[in-house]
Simulated scan of single mutants.
Amino acid sequence: MTGGAAETVERLLGVGVHRVSGRSPARVELDDGRTVVAKNGAADPGSVPAEAAGLRWLAVPDGPPVPDVLADHDEWLVTTLVPSGSPSSDAAADLGRRLAALHANGADAFGSAPPGGPELAWIGRARMRNVPTDRTWAEWYATDRIEPYVRAAGGQLDTAVFDDVMNRLPELAGPDEPPARLHGDLWSGNVLWSPDGAWLVDPAAHGGHRETDLAMLDLFGLPHLATVLAAYDETAPLADGWRTRVPLHQLFPLLVHTVLFGGGYAGQADAAARAALRT
């Protein structure tokens, strides 16, 4: 389907458009009084079905609220708008409990995509392969979430350190856990604070280890993070040593950022790998 946000939303929703603000994502005010968000994924083929499937999969009872998918067609995704608000301690505690509920809904396997989601998905502007496995999390994390991005980063990284991490992952990973239902790209920019609490947007959803979502929250900072983590741990206690495994779980997003942006992210990824080996 071709056309801009206004024309596309009118076609997909069958409602006239009053005003469009921004480009992509665009804020679209409808003639019936609603305001929706329209995102164009033409630059990232497959991103629209991946995101739509992820949002639907993450919409679980008692989990964090996510925008409703109103339409997804070809390169356009239309969702409900999250009202703007401010972070608070109460909302953070609620987010921690709801994240525990989301993760507890589980996934078919490590690496599994949401139902209807493509095998070749995206995390930000980087490709991410979602293929279910019967291997352990440590084996899958090494081959599907560390090794491909170390290769893609080329000479920016100390590859010997990452080889050590991958070889030692079974002993570094902590106790075995079942696959959790992950948001997958849970940095602070994908947590929107509204008057009724924290919402999650822009997922890279897949089956993984629940500590990965929590480690990503810590990577770029989140208001009231300690409150989020305490409420999570009270609701669904984390395995002993989870705090020391944070750098291990941060390797994936840091490697993605190294591939996309280079620069200081390579140094951060190297430092995280060395920290993971010290656990």
Rank of each mutant, 00 (worst) to 15 (best):
G4I: 07
G4E: 11
A5D: 14
A6Q: 09
A6V: 03
E7K: 02
E7P: 07
E10K: 04
E10F: 03
L13N: 03
R19P: 13
R19E: 15
G22I: 00
R27P: 10
R34W: 13
K39D: 13
K39C: 11
K39Q: 15
G41E: 08
G46S: 10
V48Y: 04
A53F: 09
R56A: 14
W57N: 05
L58I: 00
A59T: 07
V60F: 09
D68V: 10
L70T: 06
D72M: 09
L77H: 08
L77Y: 07
T80Y: 13
T80R: 09
T80A: 08
T80F: 13
V82H: 12
V82P: 13
S89W: 02
S89I: 01
D90E: 15
D90Y: 00
A91M: 03
A92C: 03
R97W: 04
R97I: 01
R98D: 12
L99T: 01
A100H: 04
H103R: 02
A107V: 02
D108R: 12
A109I: 04
F110N: 04
F110T: 00
G111R: 03
G111M: 07
P118G: 10
R127Y: 13
M128H: 15
M128D: 15
N130I: 03
V131T: 15
T136I: 13
W137Y: 11
A138T: 06
E139T: 10
W140A: 11
D144W: 12
R145Y: 11
V150F: 10
R151Y: 15
T159Q: 15
T159H: 14
A160K: 14
V161M: 12
D163L: 10
D163I: 05
D164N: 06
D164T: 07
D164P: 07
D164Y: 04
R168M: 12
P170K: 05
E171T: 11
L172D: 14
P178S: 13
L186I: 00
G189T: 02
N190M: 11
V191I: 03
L192N: 02
A198S: 03
A198C: 01
A198I: 00
D202N: 12
A204E: 10
H206I: 06
H206R: 11
G207S: 10
H209M: 13
R210Y: 12
L214P: 00
A215S: 12
A215V: 02
A215E: 03
P223N: 01
P223D: 02
H224M: 01
L229S: 02
A230E: 12
Y232V: 00
Y232L: 00
D233E: 10
E234Y: 00
L238A: 05
G241H: 04
P247S: 02
Q250K: 00
L251K: 01
F252Q: 14
V256L: 15
H257R: 06
L260H: 07
F261I: 00
F261H: 06
G263Q: 05
G264C: 12
Y265T: 04
Q268L: 15
Q268E: 15
A269L: 12
D270R: 02
D270C: 05
R274F: 06
R274Y: 08
A275P: 11
A276K: 02
